[in-house]
Amino acid sequence: MLEGRSLISIKSLSYAYKTQKGETKALDEVNLDIKKGEWLAIIGPNGSGKSTLARHLNALLLPESGTVTVEGMDTSDAAMIWKIRQKVAFVFQNPDNQLIATTVEEDVAFGPENLGFPPQKIAEQVAQALQVVGMMDFRESAPHLLSGGQKQRVAIAGALAMNPEYLVMDEATAMLDPQGRQEVIKTLSHLNQELKLTIVYITHFMEEVVFAHRVAVLDQGKVKITGTPKEVFAQSGALMKMGLDVPEITLLADKLKQKGWIRSGGITTINEMVESLCQLK
C-alpha cells in the first residue's frame, strides 16, 4: 500500500437524498482517508453511494453530518469552495454534463480561463491535455458531433487542463470501448506515476481496479472493505454477495486454492497466477 500523508480526509460522513416518499440515505457514517499520490479505486453495487461520495470531494455536495476536508480545508466552508475546486478536478460519467463550448479546444480551455491562467499557459495546457487523451486532431470540432467516447476524452482533457492535484473519475470510462478504456488507464497511470497526481477512480469494471494502489468497497452507504486489490479480491465471496463481479482470473485462483494447487488468494493478474503456480515446483 502506498504510504503518504492524508490529503483528503472523510470523517463520519452521512448524506441523504430527499424524495417525495421521504429520505433515501446514500452515505452512512463513512470514514476514509485519501493519501498523497495514491490511486484509490472505489467500487460497489449500484446505489451503494459511490457517486455521492465522489461529489463530496470537491463540494458538489455538502455533508449533512460529518466532515470532508481537502488539505485541511473544510468543504462546508463557503470561503474555501473555490480553492478546493481548483485542487480537485471532477470527470462525470456523462460527458454531456461538462461540454459547453462550440469547439473542443474552447471547451478544454474553459477551466483554465476561469482559473485566470495567462493566454500562453492556457494554450500550452490545452494542447498538452488534448495530446494526452488523443484528441488533438479534433480540436476544432464541435463537441456535440463527437461520439460518446470522444466526448468523454474531451471531458478528461478539460479536467487535466486545469492542472489539478487530485482527479476524481466517476465511472469516466463507462462510455468507452475496450481500446478507449485501455488508453485512458494508460494515461492515468502516467499521470499518477510520473506526475504524482492523486486519482480517485470509481468504476464497475473490475479489471480496471487492479491498477489502483488501494480499493474501497461501498455497500448500502458504508465502507465495507478496504485494502490493496489483492487483499480485496481475496474476499471474492463477500464481493459476490454484494452483487459485484470478480475477475475471472480471481475466481480461477480461488478454485485452484481450494484444491491445494496454489497457496495464495486474491490473484488479479496472469503474472500473479504464474508466480503462484511456480512456487509449488
Score class of each variant (00 low, 15 high):
134 G>Y: 05
125 Q>T: 01
169 M>R: 11
157 A>W: 07
238 A>V: 15
140 E>W: 12
228 T>D: 07
241 K>L: 15
176 L>C: 02
220 Q>E: 13
180 G>P: 03
184 V>T: 04
131 Q>S: 14
188 L>T: 03
145 L>F: 12
223 V>N: 01
123 A>G: 09
189 S>F: 13
219 D>K: 13
142 A>M: 12
147 S>P: 09
229 P>Q: 04
226 T>P: 01
203 T>I: 03
165 E>S: 13
126 V>R: 06
206 M>Y: 03
199 I>R: 00
232 V>Y: 06
232 V>W: 06
141 S>R: 14
242 M>R: 10
161 A>H: 06
237 G>T: 15
205 F>D: 08
228 T>S: 15
187 T>V: 14
153 R>P: 07
226 T>K: 11
138 F>A: 12
136 M>D: 12
241 K>Y: 12
178 P>Y: 05
137 D>L: 11
179 Q>I: 15
242 M>N: 08
221 G>H: 06
130 L>V: 00
130 L>M: 04
168 V>N: 03
148 G>R: 11
217 V>G: 01
144 H>F: 15
160 L>P: 01
176 L>I: 03
145 L>I: 11
134 G>A: 03
203 T>C: 00
232 V>N: 07
177 D>K: 11
147 S>N: 10
160 L>F: 10
166 Y>F: 14
209 V>F: 04
154 V>K: 12
158 G>V: 02
124 E>F: 09
200 V>C: 02
211 F>A: 12
178 P>F: 06
136 M>K: 12
165 E>L: 11
185 I>Q: 08
231 E>Q: 15
135 M>S: 02
184 V>M: 02
170 D>W: 01
133 V>N: 01
202 I>N: 00
133 V>C: 00
202 I>G: 00
205 F>T: 04
126 V>E: 08
146 L>T: 08
220 Q>S: 13
211 F>M: 11
143 P>N: 06
222 K>S: 11
166 Y>E: 09
199 I>S: 01
219 D>F: 13
232 V>H: 04
126 V>D: 07
209 V>L: 03
123 A>D: 10
202 I>V: 08
180 G>Q: 08
229 P>W: 08
186 K>T: 06
176 L>T: 00
159 A>T: 07
148 G>Q: 09
139 R>P: 03
195 L>T: 12
159 A>W: 11
198 T>S: 11
212 A>I: 05
179 Q>A: 15
175 M>P: 04
203 T>D: 00
157 A>L: 05
